[in-house]
């Protein structure tokens, strides 16, 4: 019967996970219950305003102090509805907290401002979660710095990633496609840029993704992976838009203007210094952006890959 009123689905995001249908049905129910109570209440109010408007300054009004039966009615009926909604919501929530045994496990690390996913075979990806269709997936999450919250609207799931703690989340998607993934816990400058993708792919594609052999990748491809995994992507775009830091598009070989008026050509050594000692010079317009140093966090090899990747961004 509820499907007659499938109202929420018209503006809720696509139902991408197995939870979505249940949540949407409950949401529909609450919306209709709300609309009905709203109509009763505000409808009554409007009728009374029209019907009992003041005719003269000497109007006599009825002296009604209370009515126990009516008051009982409008406390008890809402109570029943609220309790019903509560139980329904709890049952659905319990499903979300019941972790299946045969699930694919992914470790998720939040940081300012991006996500790093680590799969069980050590494969990593940045800001992109790849999962097979029709299989339960358990995410084990934590954070490197401040609290973040992992949210995929189409899946109706959300969980905070808290530094020093491990939190878990699971879902199963039966629908191929790409889904938006947001951070919903305010985390600073690029909070609204901390957007990633969940890609639901076929089992074969997933296996291929997991097994992708690094030795068969080009240097630029390796660089692209490092760009995502190491979190460069959080602050630097590759399409020319300005995020927290300057975009990498067309950067290679260009002349960079510094905030202190000096200029330099963007070459291998410039790139290396910028990664390892980012406070040395600031690009004009970005003097107040504090990029953390990556000394000890990226190897010389990875720097080479990153440089090749930047070269490829014409």
């Amino acid at each position: 019967m509820l499907h007659m009123f499938a109202f929420a689905q018209s503006y809720m995001p696509i139902q991408g996970s197995t939870f979505a249908k249940g949540v949407d049905s409950l949401f529909d129910f609450t919306i209709w219950a709300s609309i009905i109570s709203f109509v009763i209440l505000i409808g009554g109010l409007v009728i009374f305003v029209v019907k009992y408007q003041r005719r003269s300054d000497n109007d006599k009004t009825a002296y009604i102090t209370h009515n126990v039966f009516l008051e009982f009615l409008w406390s008890f009926i809402p109570l029943c509805i609220f309790m019903g909604i509560f139980v329904w919501g709890y049952v659905l929530y319990k499903d979300m907290r019941q972790f299946p045994d045969n699930a694919i496990e992914v470790n998720v690390m939040g940081y300012q401002w991006g996500w790093t996913m680590t799969y069980s075979n050590g494969k990593q990806s940045g800001n992109e979660l790849v999962v097979p269709v029709g299989k339960p997936v358990v995410l084990t999450m934590t954070s490197k710095d401040v609290i973040h919250s992992f949210y995929v609207p189409s899946f109706r799931i959300k969980q905070d990633a808290v530094p020093g703690k491990r939190s878990k989340l699971w879902f199963q998607s039966d629908r191929l496609g790409d889904y938006e993934m947001f951070c919903t816990e305010y985390c600073g400058t690029a909070h609204s840029k901390m957007i990633g993708k969940v890609r639901v792919v076929t089992q074969a594609e997933f296996n291929e993704f997991l097994a992708k052999d690094k030795s068969k990748m080009t240097l630029a491809e390796l660089g692209q992976e490092a760009f995502n995994v190491k979190g460069c992507v959080a602050c630097h775009s590759v399409d020319g838009t300005v995020k927290v830091g300057p975009s990498f598009k067309g950067l290679w070989g260009s002349t960079v203007n510094h905030s202190d008026g000096t200029t330099a050509v963007f070459d291998e050594n410039y790139a290396r210094t910028s990664i390892l000692n980012p406070q040395e010079k600031f690009v004009a317009g970005f003097a107040n952006v504090i990029m953390p140093t990556y000394q000890g966090q990226v190897s010389e090899e990875e720097i080479t890959h990153l440089i090749e990747y930047i070269k490829s961004l014409k």
Partner: peptide, 8 residues
């Protein structure tokens, strides 16, 4: 206040 809805 409804848990499953609030998650979303």
């Amino acid at each position: 206040a409804t848990m499953a809805i609030d998650v979303h």
